[in-house]
Structures are given as C-alpha cells and as structure tokens.
Design a protein around this nucleic acid. Sequence first.
DNA 1: GACCAGGTGTCCG
DNA 2: CGGACACCTGGT
Length: 274
Amino acid sequence: MTEIFDADFDIVKIAESGQCFRLNQSGENTYKLTAQGRVLSAERMRSGGVRFDCTQAEWDGVWCSYFDMETDYAAIRAAIDPQDAYLTAAAAYGAGIRILRQDPWEALISFILSQRKNIPAIKRCVETLCVRFGEPVPGHVQERAFPGAERLAGLELDCLNGCSLGYRGKYAQAAARMVASGELDLRKLAVLPDDALFDALLRVPGVGKKVAECTMLFGFHRLNRFPVDVWIERVLTREYPGGFPLSRYAGMAGVLQQYLFYYERSGRTEERRS
DNA sequence: GACCAGGTGTCCG
DNA sequence: CGGACACCTGGT
C-alpha cells in the first residue's frame, strides 16, 4: 500500500477527463487502472489522500511517473492570466486533473477509435480489443493488457470489426501494420520535435489533426499540444471569439485544454448562466 | 426511424 | 483550399 496526499491529484477527475479509457470506477470509492503491464487499484480516503495497492517501490518506479507527479500543476494554474476569468474558473474547477503518461501505441489506437464515438462506446471497444487479443497481466487472471501492434497487425479485418470498431477497423489495422512493420517507429517518433511528430502521425490512415493532437498530448506527453474537439470548439467560439492566447501558455496549453474540456463537459457554464 | 456521438477521407466548387 | 457528405455502431 502506498498513500499519497496531493491537492493536485484527483483520481475521479482524471478518470472522467476522457484522456484515458482504462481507468474506471470499480467500487464506491475505488478506481481500477490497467496500464504499464500492470493493474492498479486506487481508493479515495476520507482523509483526502489516495491509497494505491502497490508497494512504495512500484509507486516510485512506475506510477509516480505515469501520473506525472513531477509536473507542478499548481504552478501552471498560477501562470493563468488573472484577467481571464473564464480560464481561471475552469482551472479552479478542474484542479486535480493530471496528464497521464500513457503508452504511445495505446493512445494512438484509442484515439483513432474515438472518432465519432462517445466515451462509453470508446471504452467498450477498447475493452473488447483487450479481452479478445490482449495478453494476461502477470499476477492477474482476469485482466488483459492492451494488445500490441504485432497482434493487431496479424488480425483479419473481421476480427477487429467484431469489436464494434466500425469503419475505424481498417484504420486501426493499417496503423498496426505500419507499427509492426517498422514503417512507423514510435520510439523514434518520441524524440522528434513537435512539428515533425505531428506530421508523422498525420501520415497514419484515420489520423487527422484532432487524433494526432490527442496522441501527442496523452501518448507522447507533449504538454504544449491543444486538441480541439467539438467541446473545445464550443468554448473557443463562445468564450474566445478573438482566439485563445496559445502563445502566452507555451509548454502548458494541453493542461489548460483539459481544464477547459472538463469544465465544459461538466455543464458548469450553463448552470451559472441560468 | 431520424439523428447524433470527443473526426477523417474524399469529392466538389 | 474551404465546405459538404458518407461512414460503422449503439444510444435516445
């Protein structure tokens, strides 16, 4: 067991933030995450802390980095323009969200599958892929890891489409084959500058601007990226008709995007106005 | 049954 | 080069 106390760590908000699809509520106060070839349970304590069912060594070696504990999110919020009341409110509301360091491959496929799907549907098809094609997680009978590129690359399209991927099945298959063949080397992409990484991702079928941005932010931890989906688009037209001041927030735009996204999805803005 | 959901590729003008 | 439009599938 490891317990952390950090005002800037809210497992509920992270789970609801829509950045990852394998962190889910498993009990009244517990959440379960499958990632890093492991399963982690987290329990919210009355004390305000979060207790994990892992050793201190496992926390230090794996999860501390996965949850991006080295980034100072309070400092990012402190950098927000105090004149920007909307962003200030969104950030206060979303405090506790962190950008996870997800596996680039898993993020790439997950966001390819996300297009024109709602979050429950995305979670369902990711879960089905894992159950059918993923390797068991060591030490756990039930849990499956996210299937590797080689595994997906070897599947017939029918097998993929059996997981409710719809027209995205052929995209996922093509991406898997690019990665499995080495045509798309995610380890090499990881060291590319932002622009080059973005261009490389756009070459994958089914990856457009939005999916590339999400893959960069959530899979490659490029905190400067600012994915614009329909929710963010709504915020931008309503609150930032003159444009969002991206240049002011170099290196942290992605974090602010998460705050805006979470705030918009919560419906807080509408409530305040009615 | 029409319509939409955290888009993308394609085809028009 | 911007703007329609189709696309799988599950839910309202």
